[in-house]
Design a protein around this nucleic acid. Sequence first.
RNA 1: GGGUUGUUAGCUCAGCUGGCAGAGCAACGGACUCUUAAUCCGUGGGUCCGGGGUUCGAUCCCCCGACAACCCA
Length: 510
Amino acid sequence: MANKGQKKGQDDGLNDQMRVRRDKMQALRDKGIDPYGHRFDRTDTTAQLHEKYGEMSKEQLEKEHVEVAIAGRMMTKRGKGKVGFADLQDRDGRIQIYVRKDVVGDDNYLIFKKADIGDILGIHGDVMMTDTGELTVRASHVTFLTKALRPLPDKYHGLTNVEQKYRQRYLDLISNPDSMDRFKKRTQIVSAVRSYLDGNGFLEVETPVLHTSAGGASARPFITHSNALDIDLYLRIALELHLKRLIVGGMERVYEIGRVFRNEGIDTKHNPEFTELETYAAYWDLSDVMTETEELFRSVSNKVLGTGKITYQGQDVDLDKPFAREHMVDAIKRVTGIDFWTPMSTEDAKKLADEKGVHYEDFWQTGHIINAFFEQFVEPTLKQPTFIYGHPIEISPLAKKDPKDPRFVQRFELFIDGNEYGNAFTELNDPIDQRERFEAQAKEREEGNDEAHGIDEDYVEALEYGLPPTGGLGIGIDRMVMLLTDAPSIRDVLLFPTMRPEKKLSEDEL
RNA sequence: GGGUUGUUAGCUCAGCUGGCAGAGCAACGGACUCUUAAUCCGUGGGUCCGGGGUUCGAUCCCCCGACAACCCA
């Protein structure tokens, strides 16, 4: 699609509009005007003008005669012979400009007259109010800053072609203010997350993206190669194991917001690379992390949106109220009537799964099946923020056992509107237990689970020096942004989502 | 992995039962000194996603492929 414009039209590969714009660019050069100009001093952004002068009267503005300089992309244009109006757009919004031939002069007016929608202009002028009450900059001089050689998307409908929005995000940002707003909010959300954690004694750190073994989560990694070391390396699938090494090292409270990579399916909730937040705090347990998680969502929402009461895809969600807390086994019992507190063999559990139509793999044990029951029957019903805790040990190789019932671990996940938003545990700090969990994972891998963890000897060695009791948390930042900006797809909160390249035929394919 | 839908001018979209490819915006020429999806008159612009097939004739029907969106596992 991106190449479409280059292939159509005449022999030069240009369509009529592109040809006209190139001609206009040359015409500017011929007049001694650089179509790709230089620095331009702005006095205000469009938003600042609306803020400062939007409430003033026509007469007041006329009297004060405020001289300003603004710059932006011309989005619309309304000519009227010897006078013209246009809307200039900058990062924060738009403002109308008013250009009169008798004010700017014949030559300068011609520059405005010949300028195309999409060109970037600088305007010196004074602030006025039109008869219809629109705040406007009356130009005293038009400075040409950048020629756009391609036409912009439809000025009224914007860019709606989803594929093109993702592949050419800049066009989406230019023509769809909602999209621009969402990405600004994303920045504010990440900033608010940092602000909360920085204010609670956490140290932001950076750990390696290239790992010698991919651990900390269940996922297939991307593999790459180091020429210098002549070894294969894995792009990280989680931040966990390095951050906990830093807790061993005495940093006590650390967090990282970083890109992780999982070589798995792509859909509305998954992109191969995404941004994860993980935090670790020494001497905390699960209840501390629940408090942290709750405060984090609440404070970020209130800081960025000014409220904790939000709507996600039609579902009202209240982040201000205390989040519900329920044990996974209790939740399954509440919804299905099936009681997994009763000790049962793998065979018994598989029989229950057959009866209820729950799919399972050969290598699954009771814990895997409990989790499948939860995902199938309970997860979609959790609309308001709910902590589900007490996961089966089989699916949680890095969490500390529940001292009262070693079938389960001290772990929780946060669910809102049927989706998972956070995953946390009291960290397993017993190196002997950790080695056994890794060995169980290695066995699972042999039995066909290619997402199972490998044995990370170096990490076990770190634990042998002593990891203090620690509470850890992982939150998918992209999902959080989706929730707070009411985005239906993860691609709507990623500036450049992963896309398959458009097919280009190579020589040997022809 | 399976299913459904989509791909037509720079953008947004029509296109009937298979019969010369259409509109709005954008562009070009002209008129217009407070317009705002400016208006009025005129003009140009197409590899109908790609490749095969059926047919006198295919944007349309059939097959294969590309990319995307949505749903399901």
